[in-house]
Design a binder for these strands. Structure first.
Length: 804
RNA sequence: GCAGGAGUGGCGGAAUGGCAGACGCAUCAGACUCAAAAUCUGACGUAGGUGACUAUGUGUGGGUUCAAGUCCCAUCUCCUGCACCA
């Protein structure tokens, strides 16, 4: 009997060995493969089994690529600036720099328990001045290119975090971080002109090997629409109001116009009679939070007393104000066609505004309209010279026709807004701008970067709309780098996303203090081949990173404009009943006990075995027994047979090649849970065959441990060594399956009568239909009654006799 | 409301249109043991039968096909994302 498997001894031994003799080395000849994890923010809670999953997936993939002959770039770092780190520090009453450093140390230790291939020489930390020097440098470059600009307007404000937020950080009107209801606050803000890249961000999605879901979320977020801007003169006044519409074909059906309460002309359109009501409506709207505005099911509005003139037919239509029109989309004003738009219909019905149908539904005008007809299909009616045209055709042509007649222009619109980039908090990169009374906004000269975050006693958010940095006079007061006059520093900081938008570029050249990344290394090691992480960043981090990469490509820092060639989103590990693991729910499962009891290899495999990697999975500790038993059985199989000199047989060769084939195809398709079950299946088969034959050949056993190596590296290495090898199992290439050797000569085939299985026959694989049918008939002869009207034989699959 | 995903034993989950439930957990029985643990062997969808068996079964209702968990139509439920974007 072989010595029993002692996971602790084996793991300890190999950890040490790998430290002395790394398995992933860059010889300068092997092709690179960059496999990246979304880097964590170092929270105080440490890792739970859910965090492990993504790291295990990426490590398995990395080791597989390693065995295929690549040099693996598999780095890890810390997204340590930002709200979570700062809020944690405030709660614990320590300085964020201190708590962050402690958390990094703790999590790093935990991550090391995974036994992943991480190359700690590449480590980055977004709060390291050597790192954020370049975060600031990118901002300065963007400023110089006109992509970073200042603007005062009502932004999303989280009253709990006491800071402004980007649109992407507002979820259902609440703060993405803390869940508090987001309000509006008029603030001077730094903005990044991500909208300048809207078209490229949209189009280049086609290039990416990403989950369709994520691509769709991004394209919806960018939200491109085609339409026209149409100018409506205001009756009796000089001004014109421009509206944006995607349905210019329905222009004849416009019976009123609605302006957002924030529209520049809103107040001035009021007449003496309506002034009071209009002013009140505008004021009320300004007090409403996003949530209130969203939750108001019933439409509200107020008539201004003024009229607009439909430029096509001269019809006078009333101008209303309503908060269902958004001020910052399109022109903040819309023409309303109640017959063909749900919202306009609801509004018109409520306020008794006429409804004019301009597209015939099923060739007819609808009597007693009860809902809007929103399809752009049907013949135009009540539309002057457009009568008789097909709506779908007109929808496309109308913008040009309107433009030709000088009534407006063809245009496109995006939902994407510019990125609110400043935060009124302490724990972030200071924005490297100096406000000079003479020169305006002047960037901190590049040779003076990094602009260090000052050490302070008090870093609590002020809530006044100013960052805590504003209170540090000696830091704020400086001189203008251009004219030398007294000037003030910008006191806002950057959002957490700033560092994470480009960190993946830095890993490969993290000590370079001359450049963000050398062009040579960028060309050699970038971009990321495989990016693995949760889906929660679909429109945040992943969109921002694409934007940054495109910008850095445009200014020549890198030569590619998409950062992540392939993306994989792993599902979340939850507690019982799909409840998210959290401290407050008390359902957090720590990997520490499991590692102690079952070992790292077992936990790695169980993380994958719990379910398809892309789906959420409920954690159940008990299941780990299964993989632990498998590892023990495999250990015993190998050690019991290694000295028995088992001969290769036809059966064992076939088994070996089928095993390689199955494991590899499942791995390639990222079906990692079935890779693990595959190992168990083949292990069972090998055990049976070894029993039958009185041994198992060496080649088959070694192939099995080679396949197992990316999943359970310690045990694979140990067994590899026990087989007498002095090199690492990872130095061994990934085995290849030979189709010829896998071929079955005979196959068991079900014989059906009318689609129901009535027997089985063993058939040679190469066998004629006649022979097969004859054998099939013989196998079910006693059940065969009536006339056979059809005989189906699908080689290798089935025989079906259709009987009447 | 719109878009995407999912619905299969007690549980997690497998199934290029071809014998549904692989693999594992839990459970039950047996072996080993003074005993327990570990390990090994076997059973394990439901209903009926002593039985080799028979019928039935992948959310629900239809359809296509020699053959449907898988394809098509309709419908219900759950999850995820977006949501007054004109």
């Amino acid at each position: 009997m072989a010595a029993p498997f002692n996971h602790r001894a084996v793991e300890e031994k190999w950890r040490k060995r790998w430290e002395e003799h790394p398995v992933n080395v860059n010889d300068g000849k092997k092709p690179k493969y960059y496999c990246l994890d979304m880097f964590p923010y170092p929270s105080g809670n440490g890792l739970h089994v859910g965090h492990w999953r993504g790291y295990v997936i990426s490590d398995v993939w990395s080791r597989y690529k390693l065995m295929q002959g690549h040099y693996i770039i598999h780095p890890m770092g810390w997204d340590a600036f930002g709200l979570p780190a700062e809020n944690y520090a405030i709660k614990m009453g320590v300085h964020p720099a201190k708590s962050t450093a402690a958390n990094v140390a703790n999590i790093k230790k935990q991550i090391n328990d995974i036994a992943a291939l991480y190359d700690w020489d590449m480590e980055v930390n977004t709060t390291d001045p050597k790192f954020y020097k370049w975060t600031q440098w990118i901002f300065v470059k963007m400023f110089k290119e006109g992509l970073a600009y200042e603007k005062e307007f009502p932004i999303n404000w989280c009253p709990s975090c006491k800071t402004g937020l980007a649109n992407e950080e507002v979820v259902n009107g609440c703060c993405e971080r803390c869940g508090a209801t987001v309000t509006k606050k008029n603030l001077r803000q730094w903005m990044l002109k991500i909208t300048a890249y809207a078209e490229r961000l949209l189009n280049d999605l086609d290039k990416l090997d990403w989950p369709e879901k994520v691509k769709k979320m991004q394209s919806d977020w960018i939200g491109k629409s085609y339409g026209a801007e149409v100018e409506f003169p205001v009756d009796g006044r000089e001004e014109k109001i421009t509206v944006y519409t995607t349905r210019p074909d329905t222009l004849y059906g416009a019976t009123f116009m609605v302006l957002a309460p924030e529209h520049a002309l809103a107040a001035s359109l009021a007449t003496e009679d309506t002034k009071e009501a209009v002013d009140k409506y505008i004021l009320d709207a300004s007090m409403k939070s996003n949530v209130d505005r969203l939750q108001d099911k019933e439409k509200t509005g107020v008539f201004t007393g003024s009229y607009a003139v439909n430029p096509l037919n001269g019809a006078k239509i009333p101008i209303w104000l309503s908060d269902y029109v958004l001020a910052d989309y399109g022109t903040g004003a819309i023409m309303c066609v109640p017959a063909h738009d749900d919202r306009d219909f609801e509004f018109a019905t409520k306020f008794n505004i006429p409804i004019i149908q301009v597209i015939a539904k099923d060739g007819k005008e609808i009597e007693n309209m009860t809902e809007a007809y929103t399809e752009a299909s049907g013949i135009m009616i009540n539309s002057g010279e457009w009568n008789g045209m097909e709506s779908a055709v007109l929808k496309k042509e109308a913008p040009m026709m309107i433009e030709k007649r000088g009534l407006g222009r063809k245009t496109v619109n995006y939902k994407l807004r510019d990125w609110v980039f400043s935060r009124q908090r302490y724990w972030g990169e200071p924005i490297p701008i100096i406000h000079c009374p003479h020169c305006g906004n002047v960037p901190v000269p590049e040779d003076q970067l990094p602009l260090r975050l000052p050490e302070v006693e008090s870093y609590q958010p002020t809530g006044t709309g100013e960052s805590p940095l504003a209170a540090i006079d000696e830091w704020v007061n400086t001189t203008c780098p251009v004219c030398g006059a007294p000037a003030k520093r910008e006191t806002n900081t950057m959002p957490q996303w700033a560092g994470s938008s480009w960190y993946f570029l830095r890993y490969v050249d993290n000590h370079n203090d001359k450049e963000l990344v050398s062009r040579e290394k960028a060309d050699k090691y970038l971009p990321v081949d495989m990016y693995i992480g949760g889906v929660e960043h679909a429109v945040l981090h992943l969109l921002y990173s694409r934007f940054y990469t495109k910008f850095l490509c445009d200014i020549g820092v890198v030569d590619f404009d998409e950062p992540f060639t392939k993306l994989f989103n792993q599902g979340m590990i939850t507690g019982e009943n799909g409840v998210k693991m959290s401290k407050s729910m008390g359902n957090v499962v720590s990997p520490d006990d499991l590692i102690r009891d079952y070992g790292c290899d077992a936990l790695r495999m169980y993380e994958l075995f719990v379910g398809p990697p892309e789906l959420d999975a409920e954690w159940d500790d008990r299941g780990i027994e299964g993989v632990a038993r498998f590892l023990k059985r495999f250990w015993n199989l190998v050690l019991d047979n290694k000295d028995r000199d088992g001969k290769e047989t036809k059966e064992s060769v076939k088994l070996r090649h089928k095993m390689v084939h199955d494991i590899t195809t499942r791995l390639e398709s990222f079906s990692l849970n079935t890779v693990i079950s595959g190992f168990m299946e083949y292990n069972n088969k090998m055990i049976d065959l070894a029993k039958q034959q009185g041994g198992m050949d060496r080649e088959t056993l070694e192939t099995a441990m080679t396949l197992l190596a990316p999943f359970a590296p310690h045990i694979a290495e140990e067994l590899w060594e026990q087989m007498g090898h002095t090199d690492s199992v990872f130095a061994h290439g990934w085995p290849k399956a030979d189709a010829e050797s896998m071929k079955e000569e005979e196959k068991e085939i079900a014989v059906q009568i009318n689609g129901k299985t009535r027997g089985v026959v063993n058939l040679p694989v190469e066998c004629s239909k006649e022979e097969a049918i004859a054998a099939g008939k013989a196998a079910v002869a006693d059940r065969l009654t009536g006339n056979i009207v059809k005989e189906i034989y699908v080689p290798g699959r089935i025989i079906n006799l259709v009987v009447k």
